[in-house]
Computed example of a mutant assay.
Amino acid sequence: MRRSRTVAIVRVVVAVAVVVALVWGVARNWTEISQDLQRVSIGALLLSFVPAALGTWLTMVGWRVILADLGSPLHLAPAGGVFFVGQLGKYLPGSVWTVLVQADMASHLHVPRRRTGVTGLVTIGLSVLTGLLVGLPALPLLLQRSAGSSGWLLLAVPLLVVLVWPALLNRLIAWGLRVLRREPLEETLSTRAILTTVGLYALAWVLFGVHILVLALAVGGGTGVTLASLTGYALAGSLGMLTVILPAGLGARDGILAIVLASAMPLSAGTAVALVSRFVVTLVDVLAAAAGWAYARRHHLVTSREEREHSSGETVPEKP
């Protein structure tokens, strides 16, 4: 108990420190950043919203493909309700809230919690690996090295091996369930489902990159802005997902993206793009979750306090 409490405190402290550092950096350069923010018109903002929304939708479709392959096919509407509401869990420090919420909601659709949990963890892993693969061209930009060097392409080899080797992934899943003392899954993942999901996630990362490109062009990006935008968000987003102690990669994703974009524009402009992108992507998540919540409430995938009282026959005490 003491150890878990210490880990929780450390997570909160680190998350707060990163956010404070981000706020301090923005405040220190606010004069330049605010000028770049003013260049983003309402039209550019709305235009950037479209590819961001499509990318978010494809992420859900990939999750649905994996869940169906494991034995629980869902129609798009209930799948969206479960996925998008659960996605709000990524805005909390930690790494399991999204999976826990999705498992609870999907259980109302007679999907075993274990199956939903594995689906959530597998899709997170595939999303990170695919994002790193799509974002590899941005790595030399982040490290401020020559983008013409091809040595970094060798990093794609292990990523591709994991992504296209279903036997390895299935063994990892089986091993993880044994460690957690859970029953094995009834089905294993097929090559077709994995490759389909990887393709959907790759396209989703590219769409998020298009969303960045629209904003970068609005603030006046220079030579190389297309490469930095289309690959920079994938690199920043996937690395941000690895920082599980930060809510939705807050601070890490934005900082990495700003640095990558700084290869094609002033750092203040890159920071402005990262801030606007954070707003757009968060708005997409909230709107998708709101639609998902409306569907979930209508179809009893989530229960209210009154419904829990009625089902248990007991009165749930009010929180102080």
Rank of each mutant, 00 (worst) to 15 (best):
G220I: 09
E187G: 07
L58F: 04
V20E: 05
G313L: 01
A174N: 04
H310W: 07
N29L: 09
A234R: 11
P247T: 08
G80L: 05
S48Y: 09
M105S: 06
G249H: 06
V99F: 07
T282M: 00
H110G: 14
H300V: 09
W30K: 08
R28M: 08
P158M: 05
A291D: 04
L215N: 11
V13P: 04
L136N: 11
V14N: 05
G237K: 06
R113E: 08
V161N: 01
L207E: 13
G135D: 13
W30D: 05
R28Q: 12
L227Y: 09
W97Q: 06
M105C: 07
G224W: 12
S149Q: 11
R145Q: 12
S41V: 12
A291N: 07
R192M: 15
L133E: 01
G80I: 04
A68I: 04
I66G: 02
L133D: 03
V134F: 08
T282Y: 01
A147V: 11
D36S: 15
K90F: 03
V26H: 10
G220P: 09
L46Q: 11
A228K: 12
R11Y: 06
L129W: 01
G199S: 11
E309W: 01
L267K: 07
L76V: 07
R5I: 14
G151S: 04
V7F: 00
G117F: 04
V284L: 10
T191S: 14
A17T: 08
G71V: 03
G232F: 12
T315F: 02
R145W: 13
T188A: 15
D36P: 12
D104L: 05
L100W: 07
G222M: 07
L246R: 10
V19R: 07
V101D: 03
G81R: 00
S190E: 13
A296K: 05
S34P: 09
S268C: 01
M60I: 01
P112D: 04
V40D: 15
H108E: 12
V219N: 06
T116S: 15
D104N: 06
F279A: 15
A156E: 14
P78S: 03
L203A: 15
L132N: 03
L239K: 08
V219W: 02
V12E: 05
L227A: 14
D285H: 01
P93G: 00
V19F: 08
M265N: 03
V210Y: 10
P166D: 05
V26S: 09
I124L: 08
T197I: 07
V284C: 09
G255D: 12
R115M: 03
A27Y: 05
R64S: 00
S127V: 06
